[in-house]
């Protein structure tokens, strides 16, 4: 099963490669990974999308915790979360396709962020389903280039006081 894991880590050289090395060294999947500094510039926040059965996910969480540069690990699947991804899509447009490209962008509430006589660059943000759907629709027009940020996610605040929180996994060793 797919899991989205958010990892707070030291914002210093080497920290990212320790996490990446852990995944490659132990044969865990990484489907996507995005990372950037947090409000506190000494830390980065990484969102990792991975998959595996319960036993593998348990190992991934523990192994992440074991990395000394990792400060906190949260398996977002343990609660409700919001996820987003942004894609920049450069579409080839023949004159007769230009209106169609704009129409598709409009349906997905995507923005045209650059245009040339033969292309549009469309920026779309949403969950994975939405990003994949627009890509599928634009494909027949001819996608020249595609860049995706990878998914980022954050836990939802509970609506009622008693609802469940994403639990941080105990940090040790």
């Amino acid at each position: 099963m797919e899991h989205i894991i958010s990892v707070t880590l030291e914002n210093k050289s080497g920290a990212l490669s320790r996490v990446a090395g852990l995944f490659s060294g132990r044969g865990f999947n990484i489907e996507s990974l995005s990372v950037a500094p947090t409000l506190d510039p000494s830390m980065s926040m990484m969102t990792l999308v991975t998959s595996g059965d319960d036993r593998i996910i348990e190992q991934i969480l523990k192994q992440l915790n074991k990395v000394i540069d990792v400060i906190k690990v949260v398996d977002l699947n343990e609660s409700d979360f919001v996820e987003r991804e942004t894609a920049l899509i450069k579409v080839h447009t023949k004159p007769e396709d230009r209106a169609e490209a704009l129409r598709i962008a409009d349906i997905f509430r995507a923005n045209v962020v650059d245009s040339s006589p033969t292309s549009y660059t469309i920026e779309v943000t949403g969950d994975v389903k939405k990003v994949e759907a627009i890509i599928q629709l634009l494909q027949p027009l001819g996608i020249k280039e595609l860049v995706r940020t990878g998914r980022i996610a954050i836990a939802r605040e509970p609506v009622r006081a008693a609802s469940s929180h994403a639990r941080p996994v105990a940090k040790a060793t």
Binding site: Q59, K62, Q63, K66, A172, T173
Partner: peptide
Amino acid sequence: DIDPTSIRKNIHVDIPIV
């Protein structure tokens, strides 16, 4: 075990004590 990653790495454990 002091290392949580050792626990349930390859064997099911009924009573884990870190």
